[in-house]
Design a protein around this nucleic acid. Structure first.
Length: 458
RNA sequence: GUGCUAGUAGCUCAGUUGGUUAGAGCAUCGGAUUGUGGUUCCGAGGGUCGUGGGUUCGAUUCCCAUCUUGCACCCCA
């Protein structure tokens, strides 16, 4: 009798038809744009070997991986069952060798290495699938969510970076979301770390200055000090973080600062190239160079991109960058890729918040046959087939229920037309067509009904 | 993983300083109307008061634990 209420795991969601319709709208729009730019779809399994996943996302990422318990009697295979060897991180490799994917980029790198002989480079692919993270859920953060990735792999050209930004601009313009696209380059960040004499602390530095908008300059400096940066290095960093002004002024200053760092200068050059193109292209969305943009994922090496919706509490809705050696870890060195990922669920949240979904009716059915009984069913079925052949979405109520019930069904499902077929209609061949919006009724033969519905829906 | 908030019908929420049968609106179902929905009127079903334990004569109410939700940190789409 244990009649427990059914539930789903923390941070996961069911989607009702009304939500699915809106989600499909987002996915369809994104897919259409991806294809417009010449990207082709792939899919990869929900689970990967843990060895493919671990160590790719940083320490924090490893913690957030969902691990899958081995099948069978794995426990008997463990030799030492004393407490010492049962500590989580020691026992994990013994009982789990698979995990749910954390993003689509790392599985893609694995995919490219594995299928290198079946694809030709540069390889442009898109991939729309769910990913899983064992994070604490909160606003705009789920444990299962969909990413829409576009990547080009096997090309060093900065044209790819430019193209991805155009895709971002295209997608958000179509969806009606006003965004700001932030652009930076990891090489500039490396350069800065080099110049201030703390090249080993790049990650700490970037993570800290990434928070400057949120916690302010003082707290950032505090955090840097705690991470072990010398006071001198922090001092040197200040003018860089505080670089103000328009691009024309920023770049010469930055070049002066980074003049002793080869990698830093390279980063500046790359970024200037990209931005110069963007200037010519007249985007609908705002964009800017943001030296405080860092992004947490370890594998980025060049350009980094992040998109935020304007005036929204939901965090970034799209992000990405260039990774020079992701395939290297899987045994294929010297292949560079760039890619971005759209967070479909956050885009959904932003669009809900700002009421940006087009208000279409939920049902796709244009017409419902009311069911009066056995003889009438028999009479209606061929007519229904005819209507469907005319490419009109239509259905018949499956039970011989009361009129009220059937009409309510049509009403709730937003079906614009109802056809009533009883003894009278069967005798004359003229069916009663009811317009659910106006309440008007006509007696028409089936061909006229088809004509009418087609003319109205066009 | 850390801190804070909350959990009462399918949904949104009342309520109880610990005391018989826990309420409303919406939704659902039925009827007024056996071939006419969206508006109206009448009625019905639905709750182990998140779960487990403790204190008490008695707990939905107090205490503890746990799960879930929301928020902040961390991190991120």
């Amino acid at each position: 009798m244990a009649n427990k209420k059914p539930s789903i795991p923390k941070g996961t969601r069911d989607f009702l038809p009304a939500e699915m319709q809106k989600r499909s709208y987002i996915f369809d729009t994104i897919k259409e744009v991806f294809q417009r730019y010449g990207y082709l779809p792939i899919e990869t399994p929900a689970m990967e070997n843990l060895s493919s996943l671990l160590g790719k996302y940083g320490e924090e990422g490893d913690k957030l991986l969902f691990k899958i318990l081995n099948s069978g009697d794995f426990f008997s295979k463990i030799k030492n069952k004393d407490e010492e060897s049962l500590i989580t991180n020691k026992i994990t490799p013994l009982i789990s060798e698979k995990g749910l994917r954390y993003d689509l980029t790392v599985p893609f790198a694995r995919f490219v290495v594995q299928h290198r002989n079946d694809i030709s480079f540069p390889f442009k692919r898109y991939q729309i699938q769910p990913v899983w993270r064992a994070d604490r859920p909160q606003k705009g953060r789920y444990r299962e969510f969909f990413q829409c990735d576009v990547d080009v792999i096997g090309s060093n050209s900065l044209l790819n970076e430019v193209e991805l930004i155009l895709i971002i601009d295209d997608v958000f313009t179509r969806l009606g979301i006003e965004t700001i696209i932030c652009i930076n380059n990891r090489k500039i960040l490396y350069g800065i770390a080099e110049v201030i004499g703390e090249p080993d602390k790049v990650i700490d530095i970037t993570i800290a200055i990434d928070k400057i908008d949120k916690i302010g300059l003082e707290k950032v400096n505090e955090e840097l000090f705690q991470k072990g940066l010398s006071a001198e290095a922090i001092e040197k960093l200040q003018p860089i973080i505080n670089l103000k002004g328009i691009l024309k002024e920023k770049f010469p200053k930055l070049m002066e600062i980074l003049k002793d760092s080869e990698i830093g200068l390279q980063g500046i050059e790359e970024t200037m190239m990209v931005l110069r193109h963007l200037k010519d292209l007249d985007l609908d969305n705002k964009w800017r160079l943001d030296l405080t943009l860092a992004r947490g994922l370890n594998y980025y090496t060049g350009a980094i991109i992040e998109v935020k919706a304007e005036n929204s509490s939901i965090g970034s809705i799209c992000g990405g960058g260039r990774y020079d050696d992701l395939t290297g870890i899987f045994g294929l060195p010297d292949v560079s890729g760039v890619g971005i990922s759209f967070g479909a669920d956050r885009i959904y949240d932003v669009m809900t918040e700002k009421n940006l979904f087009p208000n279409k009716s939920i049902s796709t059915s244009k017409l419902l046959f009311v069911n009066f009984g056995k003889d009438e069913e028999k009479y209606c079925l061929p007519l229904l087939a005819k209507i469907r052949k005319a490419e009109i979405n239509a259905e018949i109520y499956p039970d011989h229920a009361k009129m009220k019930k059937q009409m309510t069904y049509a009403n709730n499902k937003n079906i614009p037309f109802v056809v009533l077929v009883g003894a009278d209609e069967m005798r004359t061949g003229k069916l009663t067509l009811k317009n659910m919006q106006t309440g008007e009724q006509d007696k028409l033969p089936i061909d006229k009904i088809i004509e009418k519905i087609i003319s109205i829906s066009n």
